[in-house]
Amino acid sequence: MVAIPRIVIAGTHSGTGKTTVASGLMAALRTQGFRVAPFKVGPDFIDPSYHTLAAGRQGRNLDAFLSGPEMIGPLFAHGAHGADIAIVEGVMGLFDGKSGGGELASTAHVAKLLDAPVVLVVDARAMARSVAAMLHGYSTFDPQLKVSGVVLNRVGSSVHEKMLRDALRPLNIPVLGVLRRDDAIQTPDRHLGLVPAAERREEARRSLDALGTVVSSSLNLDGIVNLALSAGPLEAEPWNPESAALDLPGSVRVAVATGTSFSFLYRENLESLEAAGAEVAFFDPTTDERLPAGTDALYLGGGFPETYAEALSANVAMRESVRVFAESGRPVVAECGGLLYLV
């Protein structure tokens, strides 16, 4: 049983501004002294990179498809240990899951597994009274879900804001914030979503600081915290990295690719290795010339090696180091972009 105040930031669809609201909220609450535990629904590595910078604490994933619904509570309890509040950013639209006909792995599914209230982010551009019909639909579609507040994003003016608030008043769902259209708080994106924070760390840090300031003045932080406090105790035991039961032969050093080209890693995988007694040694295939000394196993995760293909290709010394290691018969795990690098 864990008692962590928690809230889910959801959207009507992709591109509504969930990451803007969630990351800004994390930064704003951190500035106020809260220890914020950041989470992202689904197998997303990019948004958590911004959560990590905003909260000053490792961003984690809650993926009911990959981990199974039964693991959501334990993984949440593990990641939220020692925090004052947990902010969970949703994925796609609120009810979009693994398949069009079911809720598996959707934001709504994870919110119900966590028994957490939902704040819906609505892109209010070119919209007036229709916002009420939209919010009514989302708040009544699943009676087991608690849509407890709304944030209106990309509002054009004070007149536009009044029209939206007037339309929503009969629903008795509180408007917890209004964000105006502002290109200054936008984050660059490309084919898989936002550009990872690892590729623009200092710029991302400055942007998140500015975003936190905007959110502090535009959202009702006290109302959001009170809403998070309304979530009751969660019946879950924290996941234990030692439960992975890895059988390692003595002391093992695992080299893990990182840097701008390989930034997609599940933190729990590394924690499981360390709990089993392995030493995790990070290296950057774009700049380092050889694998860490004493490497016993190699882990190449995902990322954007295609974006840094020239630098990776030019680093002949590292490529040769990896080739010799692989040909020696020692363990190599490669996934996603890591597999492309080996090819």
Rank of each mutant, 00 (worst) to 15 (best):
Y299T: 12
V121F: 13
E274P: 09
V215K: 01
S106V: 09
S157W: 07
A245S: 14
A10P: 12
A105Y: 01
M26Q: 09
R205S: 14
A228H: 00
V175W: 00
T213S: 15
R6C: 10
L192P: 06
Q32Y: 05
L75T: 10
A28F: 05
A210I: 08
A311F: 12
T187H: 08
L94F: 04
V118C: 03
S261P: 14
A311Q: 13
G277L: 11
H51I: 10
A37L: 08
T307W: 09
K162S: 12
V151T: 08
Y266R: 10
V316H: 13
G250M: 10
R60M: 06
L164G: 05
P305E: 07
F95C: 06
T107P: 11
Y266T: 15
G93P: 10
T260H: 05
I46C: 05
V280F: 09
F283N: 03
P5Y: 00
P174D: 11
A22E: 00
L113Y: 04
G33F: 08
T140Y: 13
K162V: 15
A126E: 15
E289W: 03
P38E: 03
A105M: 01
T260W: 02
R30Q: 03
T295K: 01
G277Q: 12
A105F: 04
G42M: 03
A126K: 15
P305S: 11
G294N: 05
R190P: 14
H13Y: 12
K18D: 11
L248V: 14
S217Q: 15
L192S: 14
N240K: 10
V2P: 08
D47L: 06
R323Q: 12
I185Q: 02
D142N: 07
L66T: 11
G294A: 06
L53W: 00
I46T: 06
E161W: 03
G97H: 01
G24Q: 03
D63Q: 10
G11M: 02
V316F: 06
S217Y: 14
L312Q: 07
D284T: 11
T52F: 03
V110E: 00
A245N: 13
V256N: 06
A22F: 00
K162T: 15
E161Y: 07
A210N: 10
G17N: 05
G15N: 08
L219W: 01
N269W: 02
L194D: 07
K18E: 10
A55Y: 03
S263M: 13
L229Q: 13
G79N: 01
I46K: 00
S130G: 15
I9W: 00
L219Q: 07
E268S: 12
F95W: 06
A236K: 04
H78D: 06
L246F: 08
V322T: 05
R125T: 11
V195Y: 06
G11L: 01
R267F: 09
V151G: 06
V121K: 02
H191E: 12
V122R: 02
T12S: 12
R319V: 01
A133D: 14
G11R: 00
G301C: 13
E279M: 10
T19C: 05
D115F: 07
